[in-house]
Amino acid sequence: MSHAVLAPPAPGSHPWMPVSPCGDHCLPGPGEEPRVGAARRALRLGALFLVMLSGVPIAVVYPVLGARGRQWLARAWFRTVLRAVGVRLVVQGERRFAARGRGALVVSNHCSWLDIVALDAVQPVRMLAKREVRKWPVVGWFAAVAGSVFVDRERLSTLPATVDDLAAVLREGGLVGVFPEGTTWCGAASGRYRSAPFQAALDADVPVRPVMVRYLVGGAPTRSVAFVGTDTLWHSVRRVVGLRGLVVEVEPLPELPARSAPDRRALAALAQQLVAAATRRGDAPGPRPERAAA
C-alpha cells in the first residue's frame, strides 16, 4: 500500500517516483458527513485492537495450513477487520477474482489502506506493497507471512527483479494484487497506471483482472477514507471509525487476457480505462444497480 505525498520525491529517489496532487484539501471538513458518537468510536477502536491481536496467533498457524485453509482464514480475518471499523462490504458482480489455483494479476484503483483489506475480504491476494508496510504493527507481519512481495520504490534498479518475483508467483497459480497508480489518490481523481507490473502478467501469460473499489456514505461517494497528504495511519483509522454508514463496494471487471494488448503499456491503459469507466458509472446520479451483499 502506498501513501500519497504533496512534495516532490525525496532526495535520492528517482524522478519516476509516483506522486499525487491529492492532499488534506481533498478531505471533507467537520460536519460534512454523518458521524457516530464517541462511545461507538471507542467500541470500534477496541474491536480493531482485539482483531489486530488475533492476527498474531493467526500468523503463527497460517504457514502450516493447506491452501484452502489459508484462503478461508485470511478472508475471514480481513472481513472481521472491516466489521470492527464499521465498514459494510458489498461485492458487485462476480464474487471471486479468479478460480482457485489459477493465476491472475488483480489491479485496482488506490485511495486508502482499506483497499487492501477490502480486496482480501473478497478473495485473498498476495499484494505488491512498498517495503515500509512490513514495519506496520501486526498487518506488516501478516502481510509478510501471507506472501506479499515488497518493493523498494526508491531503488529503480530493483524493479526488474520485483517483476520476475511477481511472474513466478503468477506462474504458480497465485493471485497477485497491485495498485498500479503507485500511490494513493482521493477518489475524486485518479492517476495513470504504471506499466511495469503488467509485464509480469505478460511473462507468466496470465490474465489481468481489473477491480473497482469505491467508498460510500449515505449512498454517495466519500473521500473521508482517503489516506493522503499529511495523514498518519492512526489519524486515518480514527477518521474511518467515526463515519456512520460507511460501505465499500468491490466490483471485479471483465478479465483481460495477457495478449489482449500489444504490450504492457497498452495493457495498463486498457485496465485503467475499465476501472475509470466503472467508477464514473457508479458515481452517476440515478438508480443504482442492485447490490449483492457479501
Results as ranks from 00 to 15, higher is better:
Met1Leu: 10
His3Val: 12
Val5Met: 07
Leu6Ala: 08
Pro11Lys: 03
Pro11His: 03
Gly12Gln: 07
His14Lys: 07
Pro15Tyr: 01
Pro18Leu: 09
Asp24Ser: 13
Glu33Lys: 11
Gly37Thr: 08
Gly37Phe: 07
Ala39Tyr: 06
Leu43Met: 13
Leu45Tyr: 01
Leu48Ile: 09
Leu50Gln: 01
Met52Gln: 14
Gly55Ala: 04
Pro57Trp: 00
Tyr62Thr: 02
Pro63Met: 04
Gly66Met: 07
Ala67Gln: 14
Ala67Ile: 10
Gln71Val: 10
Gln71Glu: 15
Leu73Val: 14
Leu73Trp: 12
Arg75Gln: 15
Trp77Gln: 00
Phe78Leu: 06
Arg79Glu: 12
Arg79Asn: 07
Thr80Met: 12
Val81Cys: 14
Ala84Gln: 00
Gly86Gln: 08
Val87Ala: 04
Leu89Cys: 04
Gln92Leu: 11
Gly93Asp: 09
Glu94His: 13
Arg96Tyr: 08
Phe97Ser: 09
Ala98Glu: 14
Leu105Gln: 09
Asn109Cys: 11
Ser112Ile: 11
Ser112Glu: 10
Trp113Thr: 07
Ala118Glu: 04
Leu119Glu: 07
Pro124Tyr: 06
Arg126Trp: 04
Met127Gly: 02
Leu128Glu: 05
Lys130Cys: 06
Lys130Arg: 15
Arg131Leu: 12
Val133Thr: 05
Val133Trp: 07
Arg134Val: 12
Arg134Ser: 12
Trp136Met: 11
Val139Glu: 02
Gly140Thr: 09
Trp141Ile: 08
Ala146Val: 03
Gly147Asn: 08
Ser148Asn: 08
Val151Lys: 05
Asp152Cys: 05
Glu154Val: 08
Glu154Gln: 13
Leu156Asp: 02
Thr158Tyr: 00
Thr158Asp: 13
Ala161Asp: 14
Ala161Gly: 12
Asp165Arg: 15
Val169Leu: 14
Gly173Cys: 13
Gly174Trp: 02
Pro180Thr: 06
Pro180Trp: 00
Pro180Phe: 00
Gly182His: 10
Ala188His: 14
Ala188Lys: 13
Gly191Ile: 09
Tyr193Thr: 06
Ser195Glu: 14
Ser195Val: 03
Ala201Leu: 10
Val208Asn: 04
Arg209Lys: 15
Arg209Gly: 08
Pro210Ala: 00
Val211Glu: 05
Tyr215Asn: 01
Tyr215Lys: 08
Val217Ile: 15
Gly218Leu: 01
Gly218Trp: 02
Gly219Tyr: 01
Gly219Gln: 05
Ala220Phe: 02
Arg223Ser: 13
Val228Arg: 11
Gly229Gln: 10
Leu233Ile: 15
Trp234Asp: 11
Arg239Gly: 01
Arg239Ile: 00
Val240His: 11
Val240Tyr: 09
Gly242Met: 01
Gly242Cys: 10
Arg244Ser: 14
Arg244His: 15
Arg244Gly: 03
Gly245Val: 12
Val247Ala: 00
Val248Lys: 05
Glu249Asp: 05
Glu249Lys: 03
Val250Pro: 05
Leu253Met: 09
Pro257Asp: 12
Ala261Trp: 11
Asp263Met: 04
Asp263Gln: 04
Arg265Asn: 10
Ala266His: 15
Leu270Ala: 15
Leu270Phe: 04
Leu270Cys: 11
Ala271Gly: 15
Leu274Asn: 08
Leu274Gly: 02
Ala278Val: 03
Ala278Ile: 03
Ala278Ser: 14
Gly282Phe: 08
Gly286Met: 05
Gly286Arg: 08
Arg288Pro: 01
Arg291Tyr: 04
